[in-house]
Design a protein around this nucleic acid. Structure first.
Ligand SMILES: [Mn+2]
Ligand SMILES: [Mn+2]
Ligand SMILES: [Mn+2]
Ligand SMILES: [Mn+2]
Lengths: 252, 252
DNA sequence: CATTATAATTAGTCTTGCCTAAGTATTTAC
DNA sequence: GTAAATACTTAGGCAAGACTAATTATAATG
């Protein structure tokens, strides 16, 4: 029982780095990790040994590095915390991408689970609530740039009035134009309306958090439309064509 | 030049503890710090030496501990980061007080200045913007409790309509009932409308961040109405009666 | 294939920050 | 005013996590 089951902030960063390198290069060597984290080779070797002790990676000297089952889960969890924080900083607080990324990677290690979930829900809420949304965040940005209470408050409110009226005329949040997930372009966001079918594929999709009401963002589509990379509740997810087929969405 | 000018997370926590103990007991002894941070006496002694090296505290063995000029500034800065984060977690995300406090005290050490400022502005925005505010946050809480998109969306929107109409009828954000700061009850929040006069006292107040548009919360009033403790932009501030006199506010 | 260049590991050092145990100072109690 | 209790410091140890320097393994090159 020499190994503890929780990772330190430093080791989490190593896991994160390994995860990302695997995602883009398939093979991981100490060199890549050292470059990415800006530490010496010696430090990497030390960290790798420590991670191997904790059963997070498969590591024998001079060999390729892979993640274990538990290691992959741990890495994904760190990445998620990073993404969730960054998302909030960029989408809601309007912080510059690089700053957000930096801050997220430092704060990701100390944020508890309850808060991660709240952040996810909050971003989702801001993006879907007819009282919040795009215009509302713009109002906040305006206030940030001009320090002091916003001058365009009236304009903002009348816009809100129009939008809210339109929303109610359409019958609340119930009726809206539905699209297929595959019709989205990379970068676009949508709200899930329905996940049709009850196949094994659909079950997996639902388990992953693609449930009615959740907001997902299309990250990229492979040349032939398969697979489709999306982000949902801070998780990256790769869907096969048939899995994406049965998902009805509303483009935001 | 044996001492560095930046504090580690651990030392920041010691500074925070010292600051709070001073605020409530006037004198600081290692015992108090050890109890508060749940560390051994030996650890406290070590930290105190380190902080003295860095010119943050005045410390000689067996003597009372006080903050230096720079130490007080550093301590206030940590406390502010803590408060700002906690405020957001409680007021906007609706996290339980103890959880929020815990998370804040772990994350406070890694949040950069730009983000702290953004958090302050965002909470202020949510609390003052007629499109945001109380009802809007309640909508979020509802969504949190019931996981899934909110059912009371229509009700929320019609409330919004009413509020926004009322707001416009009153002539936008311009005209509203003004009160004096001293009329507030502890716990109440208000938005600063005007800081009258240009005396030395007023200058100090403005410098501290009590500027038109900012949101302040009354923490407590001493028996004779002097001094008045308030919280503004994450800072705690103690105002004398004459300083509070010239501040016009709108109760939120 | 031998040589050189690069990558990786090992060995050893340093700092931070915690601990326990032991010794010293101060306070409290009688 | 001495004895006992409590508070505080010192000494020494340990783990994490970085580093440099030296050594060894692998890859590249002619
Ligand atoms: Mn990260
Ligand atoms: Mn990180
Ligand atoms: Mn704190
Ligand atoms: Mn802290």
């Amino acid at each position: 029982m020499t190994a503890s089951e929780t990772l330190t902030a430093s080791l989490e960063d190593y896991m994160e780095a390994i995860f990302h390198i695997i995602a883009e290069k398939h093979a991981v060597k100490p060199r890549d990790i050292a470059r990415r984290l800006k530490v010496s080779y010696a430090s990497v070797t030390g960290a790798l040994r420590s991670l191997a002790d904790k059963k997070m990676i498969n590591y024998t000297p001079y060999d390729l590095i892979t993640l274990t089952e538990t290691g992959e889960a741990a890495a994904k969890d760190v990445v998620r915390r990073h993404e969730v924080l960054k998302d909030f900083f960029v989408e809601v607080l309007g912080v510059r991408d690089a700053d957000a990324d930096n801050a997220a990677c430092r704060m990701e290690h100390s944020i508890p689970k309850v808060l991660v979930d709240r952040f996810v829900k909050f971003v989702e809420f801001v993006e879907t609530c007819p009282r919040g949304g795009d215009k509302w965040i713009k109002g906040f940005m305006y206030q940030c740039d001009n320090k002091g209470p916003q001058e365009n408050c009236e304009k903002c409110i009348s816009t809100c009035l129009d939008e809210v009226r339109g929303h109610m005329r359409r019958g609340g949040a119930k009726t809206m134009e539905t699209s297929k997930l595959k019709d989205l372009k990379p970068g676009q966001k949508c709200k899930v309306l329905k996940v049709r079918g009850r196949s094994e594929a659909n079950r997996r999709v639902l388990e992953m958090g693609v449930t009615p009401g959740s907001v997902i963002e299309l990250e990229r589509v492979a040349p032939l439309g398969d697979p489709i990379d999306i982000k949902v509740k801070g998780y990256h997810l790769s869907l096969r064509k048939d899995e994406a087929e049965g998902i009805d969405v509303e483009i935001i």
